[in-house]
Design a protein around this nucleic acid. Structure first.
Lengths: 339, 339
DNA sequence: TTGAAAGCGCTAACAG
DNA sequence: CTGTTAGCGCTTTCAA
C-alpha cells in the first residue's frame, strides 16, 4: 500500500500542497476559507492521510521528540529499569510527554558517554539526563542549543536545567529520625560514593545528623557496595559477623533496605526488633516490604513531570535556567523500633 | 552554533556530497580511493560532523527506530513501568536494540488505541506491541508493511510475528505443583480475565490441572480484580473473611503473590504455614519477597531479545512469519508448604 | 485567501 | 572512482 502524502491530499482536494499544510497545522496568520478548509479535511479523511513527522521535522526543525538518557546501574548490565526507581520515573516522564504530544526517544548511555550523539543524530527537541556526573560528554552537549534537563545531579551549570531533591537533607532527616527514636549506633549502607553524586550527599546528611546529636562517627558503620538487593543481603550477613553492634541502619535506597530485611531474616533476626531501618526514595516496593519500610519519601512522579515541563517551557521560548528542588519527608511505617 | 551538514564536509574535503555520503555509509558497490576517503574522514573529524538521521531517514526510508508500545496496566494510570515485569522487559529490549544501533521510540497507547499513528507518524522500522488484544487498531497496522512483533498475545495472525510463553501450560504447572504438594483447595487470584488474554490462558491451565487431578472446580476460589499489590492484599482479607477455606493460591502474577503474603501477615497469618502460594513470571521482586516466592519462571530478558531480533530479521529481508514460545519452569522457593 | 517554489540534509540512481 | 541530480514529504517565505 502506497503511503499517501500531502501531495495526494492536495490533488484530491484540488488545491496546492501549501494550502493543505496550512489547514493541517492550523498555521497562524493564514486564513483559509471555510469552504476549502472543509474540502481539504474531507480529502484527508478519505485518503486516511497521516503526516510524515520525519519530513515535517526536517523542514521545521522541530521533532516533538524528547531524548531520555538513563544510566546503567551497573556497567554492562542490561537491566537498568529493574531498579524500580527508574521505572517509576520513566513512567511519569512518558505520561507527561504524551499529554503534550511528545514522544520519547529512549537510550542507555552510549559506550563513550557521548550524550551528544543521540541528541544531534535524532535532533530531539530536548534531552533529559538522569544522574549525570560531570563529564566531557555533558560539556559537548552545550554546543547544541537544545534544552537539557539534568535529573538528580549535582553538576552545576549555568545553562542546564535541573530537578532533584536535597539529598543531604534527606540523609540527615533519615538519620535524625533514627536518633530521635533512641538509636546511636547507626549503619550507613549504600552503593559506591561518587564525587558530587547523590549518594555522597546522603552520606553527608548522615554525618550531619550524627554531628548535630554529638554522636561520634564510626567508619566501621559504613557499608559501601552497590545499589542492589543482593549487596544489602550480604551486608546484613556482614553486620552479624561483626557482632551486630549497630541497632539501626540508614539504607540510602529502598532496595537496600529490602535486602537488609531479607538478609537479617535469613539469619533468624527481625526488623525492627533486631535492627531498625530507614530507606530512601519510597519506591512502590517500600510498602510491599515486610515489615513495610519507613523511608524518606520523594515524589518521583513530580520529578518526571517537572523535567518534562522544563523542556516544554524551554522549547516554547523560556530561556531562563530553571531549577527545582522537590520536597521530601519521612514516611513512618514499620521498620523502625523506638528504643 | 551552526549545524554542520554534509555539504560543509564536502566543501572542506573538496569533493561532492555524494562521495561524502558514500564513505560515511560505506555504501556497498562504491569504491572510493583511499586517498579521498581519508581526506573526507579528516574533514568529518575536523568539522565534528554528525549526520542528521532525520534527513537520512527521509531519503532512505529507514529510520533505525523501533516503536515500543506498552499498555497501561490500568487506564488513566501513569505508572505503567511500575509493574516490574514491564521494566524488566523494556530493559532487555533497549539493550538489544542498542547493540544493533537502533533506538527506541517509546509510547503508551494513544487514547484511541491507534497503534498505527505512532508507526506511520514516525516511520519506525518495526514495532513491538506488548499484550495486545484483537482490536481494530491492530488491524490497521496491517496496512503498513512494517514488521510487527506481538509480545504476550494470543491474537492469531498470519503476518505478525509473536513471542510469548505457553501461559496455559504455566498455569497448569503452577497448579499441578501445588496439588503435588498435597493441596486441593486452591485459589486462583488474578486480574480481570480478558478474552484471548494471557490471564485467561493461565486460568485455563489452572482448571486443566484441577481436572487432571480429579479435583472439582469451585467458583468461590476464583478471585478476579486487577493486577496490583493492593488488590492482592485485599484478596487476602477477603479469603479470611470467608473463613480461609483454601490452603493454597495460584497468583497469576508475582506482584499478586506478594500482595497476598503481605495481606495475610497483616492479619497475623503466615506463608506458607497458613497458605501456600505460587506466583508467575519470576520478576526480580519474587526473590525479594519474604518468604521468597515459588513461581513459574519465564525468561523475560530472552523475551525482549527475541522480539527485537524478529524485527531485525524482518528488516533485513526475512519475510517469513516467526513465532517463538519460550520455555518456562517452576522455581521452588519458600512460599509453598508440603501438606 | 491561495499557490509557486525554495529549501531542510541526505540517499541513490545514473552518467561520466 | 567521483560527480550530477532528482527526489524523500513537508514547511515557509513571497507573490499573486
Amino acid at each position: 500500500m502506497k503511503r499517501v502524502s500531502i501531495k495526494d491530499v492536495a490533488k484530491e482536494a484540488g488545491v496546492s500542497v501549501a494550502t493543505v499544510s496550512y489547514v493541517i497545522n492550523n498555521t497562524p496568520n493564514q486564513s483559509i476559507s471555510d469552504e476549502t478548509s472543509l474540502r481539504i479535511r474531507k480529502a484527508v479523511t478519505k485518503l486516511n492521510y497521516i503526516p510524515n513527522l520525519n519530513a515535517r521535522s526536517l523542514a521545521s526543525r522541530k521533532t516533538n521528540l524528547i531524548g531520555v538518557v538513563i544510566p546503567q546501574t551497573e556497567p554492562g548490565k542490561e537491566f537498568m529499569f529493574s531498579n524500580p526507581f527508574y521505572g517509576d520515573l520513566l513512567s511519569s516522564i512518558e505520561y507527561t510527554a504524551r499529554q503534550h504530544s511528545y514522544h520519547l526517544l529512549l537510550s542507555g548511555p552510549e559506550p563513550n558517554q557521548s550524550y551528544i550523539n543521540i541528541a544531534r543524530n535524532r535532533s530531539v527537541d530536548g534531552i533529559i539526563i538522569v544522574g549525570a556526573y560531570p563529564t566531557k560528554g555533558l560539556d559537548e552537549l552545550r554546543q547544541l542549543d537544545i534544552p537539557v534537563v539534568l535529573v538528580d545531579t549535582y553538576v552545576k551549570d549555568p545553562v542546564y536545567h535541573t530537578v532533584g531533591i536535597d539529598d543531604r537533607l534527606g540523609g540527615k532527616m533519615a538519620t535524625a529520625y533514627l536518633i530521635e527514636k533512641g538509636h546511636s549506633k547507626i549503619a550507613f549502607v549504600s552503593g559506591q560514593i561518587e564525587e558530587q553524586g547523590v549518594m555522597q550527599k546522603r552520606f553527608q546528611g548522615y554525618r550531619d545528623a550524627l554531628e548535630d546529636a554529638g554522636i561520634p562517627f564510626h567508619q566501621d558503620f559504613v557499608y559501601l557496595g552497590n545499589i542492589s538487593f543482593e549487596y544489602a543481603q550480604a551486608t546484613a550477613d556482614e553486620m552479624l559477623r561483626r557482632g551486630r553492634i549497630e541497632t539501626a541502619a540508614f539504607a540510602s535506597a529502598d532496595i537496600l533496605g529490602m535486602g537488609l530485611i531479607k538478609g537479617l531474616r535469613r539469619q533468624g533476626f527481625h526488623v525492627p526488633e533486631d535492627l531498625s531501618i530507614v530507606g530512601f526514595d519510597d519506591v512502590s516496593l517500600a510498602q510491599m516490604a515486610d515489615p513495610s519500610l519507613t523511608t524518606v519519601r520523594q515524589d518521583i512522579s513530580a520529578k518526571g513531570k517537572t523535567a518534562v515541563q522544563f523542556i516544554l517551557d524551554a522549547v516554547s521560548g523560556n530561556i531562563e535556567k530553571q531549577e527545582k528542588i522537590l520536597p521530601i519527608h519521612i514516611v513512618e511505617r514499620e521498620s523502625v523500633k523506638n528504643l
